[in-house]
């Protein structure tokens, strides 16, 4: 195929133009994220983006945080998911507003979807927004939403090499939650090694061990988030 186009270049010389474009296709999302950030700041809402693989414990962590913080904050939860509302029902039980964001086939939330979801809320009646991103460790890292803080949840059941294999995911994280501490022994995963790996990549990230079944460590997460 390249040969054909080379021939064409020669045949039509004089009519061929190189247009310098310098267009970043990821920039649209970043710009919209900035808009979200401004809107949230305007309304004095603290927004937290929770990322992690399917089953890592994002919903469990959010449910725990909601129980812990609902006395002090007016909370809303955005729940990014492919189609189901199971998680949304779980969190609704605690009496906070939940907006399910259906991403269809997409592997991540983007700032446009978050902007639309923000329009469904009375922003004056909220001061804390917890956003559960789609269950996927990789893609959400590429799409900032405009949140103040980013949490990455990894669980020991994902094995000992999560950080080594995906270091870039942890660079943008403010807090890294290492969940399912109760299963570490059975999984033969050294949680301190995982923590060290995170600290090597991102010395400023706060690392917290949790068991989101029992609630252990959740108040430390809240503290790490300055809540």
């Amino acid at each position: 195929m390249s040969k054909v186009s080379e021939n064409i270049v020669k045949a039509e010389e004089g009519e061929v133009f190189d247009i310098e474009l310098e267009k970043d296709v990821l920039e649209a999302n970043r710009k919209l994220a900035e808009k979200n950030r401004e809107l949230l700041k305007d309304k004095a809402i603290t927004a937290i983006d929770v990322m992690g693989s399917i089953g890592a414990g994002k919903t469990s962590l959010i449910a725990n945080l909601v129980q812990l913080l609902r006395k002090n904050y007016r909370i809303a939860v955005f729940k990014g998911d492919l189609t189901t509302t199971i998680d949304a029902e779980i969190i609704k039980r605690y009496g906070v507003e939940v907006v399910a964001i259906n991403t269809g086939k997409e592997c991540h939330l983007d700032s446009n979807l978050v902007m639309k979801a923000l329009q469904k809320l009375n922003l004056d009646a909220i001061d804390l927004l917890l956003i559960e991103n789609v269950g996927n460790l990789i893609c959400p890292a590429e799409f900032p939403l405009g949140s103040d803080r980013r949490v990455v949840v990894v669980s020991v059941t994902e094995g000992p090499y999560m950080v080594i294999k995906h270091p870039f995911i942890f660079m943008d994280a403010d807090v890294v939650v290492i969940n399912k501490a109760d299963l570490a022994k059975a999984m033969q995963v050294d949680m301190h090694k995982l923590k060290n790996d995170v600290k090597k990549v991102n010395p400023e990230a706060k690392v917290v061990f949790t068991n989101c079944r029992s609630g252990e460590g959740v108040s430390a997460v809240s503290k790490a988030l300055d809540l």
């Binding site: 061929v16 474009l21 920039e27 990549v201």
Partner: peptide, 30 residues
């Protein structure tokens, strides 16, 4: 593993570029 630590001092680095996907140019015949 890559780290956010500075290679020259004990400071922290911030990312300047690398998170982009840029259409640099288009060659077309008119």
């Amino acid at each position: 593993m890559p780290t956010m630590q500075c290679p020259k001092c004990e400071g922290m680095v911030e990312i300047v570029s690398g998170k982009d996907c840029i259409i640099k140019s288009i060659r077309m015949s008119i």
